[in-house]
Design a protein around this nucleic acid. Structure first.
Lengths: 208, 208
DNA sequence: GTCTATAGAAGGATAGAC
DNA sequence: GTCTATCCTTCTATAGAC
């Protein structure tokens, strides 16, 4: 009954978004051609331009999908596995470490890549990038709130969540530049050291 | 006597590098066309390909120039103005804050942009990007060494210098994504708070 | 070292049949 | 919604005169 409820309903749009997502991640936006996306998605240009009037609209669809997948793919799996709020934060960060290791530090954060490449020239994309960052930081902020009494009351949760993202993105950038995950791992370790110094419990539990 | 000591010696090569540098910074590498570089430099393609066999060679020249300009343009002016090692670090960071403010957060760190855009697809460029990062971190590391007794002996200077770069780059990325310098400034403030907690002098002098 | 002219491929996007 | 065919622009790069 729904508009697209027919059997054999088209998945072309989804294939195009998925192909574009992967290629933008590996090569960047400007370096990826429409023809390459079509080949990867096994689709023809008529289909692409039926769904997306311009290449930029395809980029926006990719960024919308990243927003939708943030919780189910990046946050929730960690939250399901880990209950301690502090360890949840570092569990999320560890997901990025794994991505670096799996790709030999070739691939990092897709949002970060696009942030630096298209932020200025594509205003609508920049907004979606900011919204992706917002969603990510809200997950971290929730962990900080859940720390309850362990985090001193005068600590700005939003600012600290923003700092976690800053360390994550800066660490990934260095890991990619050096093709070595060590700068990322060291940055995360410094961040943990910082948390240890902020937190009220003096047990230093996380450093063994 | 020297090879290029004639009066009216050509500056075409320098104009090409300068034009490419500015356009790569504003638009990225892939999004910048040769024709645009030629127009900006007021040169013709014959000249460009006389000096640079490929577009990538021009990129490498830009990255070499960044290496050469790091100290005279980024580090030395701060070191000349400020003597305290800790304030030198934050003086360098403040230079990036100024760049963000001057450009309404459109332009950040040129090396960081290129790191994420070309690191994987252009190996030679990636190496030069890493060398640029190395030079930057060496300047920070020198400040850390100059702190003498204020920094506990068990603190890894290299790792901490890497962390400063991580915070700088991650902060610039967020500033550009939000078109707001606040995330950068907050990140720097958190970094200073971290230093305050690490340093041996308990006076908390930097927080008033 | 610099010029003009242009090759040859790839770019994004469109038209119109089905 | 998908197909083929193609338009027009831009791209990187080259050729050859000066």
């Amino acid at each position: 009954m729904a508009v697209e409820a027919q059997a054999g309903k088209t998945d072309t749009r989804a294939r195009l978004v998925e192909a574009a997502r992967g290629l933008f991640l590996k090569q960047g936006y400007a370096a990826t051609g429409i023809a390459q996306i079509l080949k990867e998605a096994d689709a023809r240009s008529g289909s692409l331009y039926y769904f997306f009037p311009t290449k930029e609209d395809l980029l926006l669809a990719v960024l919308e999908q990243y927003k939708e997948l943030l919780w189910p793919l990046v946050i929730q799996p960690v939250f399901d596995r880990v209950s301690d709020p502090m360890e949840r934060i570092f569990g999320v960060l560890d997901g990025y470490r794994r991505m670096l290791l799996m790709t030999e530090c070739a691939q990092g954060c897709p949002i970060g890549n696009l942030a630096l490449e298209v932020a200025e020239s594509h205003p609508a994309a920049r907004t979606l990038i900011a919204e992706n960052f917002d969603g990510w930081k809200q997950a971290i902020e929730q962990c900080l709130d859940d720390l309850d009494g362990r985090l001193p009351a005068d600590v700005d949760r939003k600012s600290l969540a923003s700092f976690v993202l800053t360390v994550m993105e800066g660490g990934i950038m260095q890991a990619r530049a050096y093709r070595d995950s060590a700068p990322f791992e060291q940055g995360v370790a410094q961040l943990r050291d910082y948390f240890d110094r902020i937190l009220d419990d003096g047990s230093n539990w996380s450093k063994g």
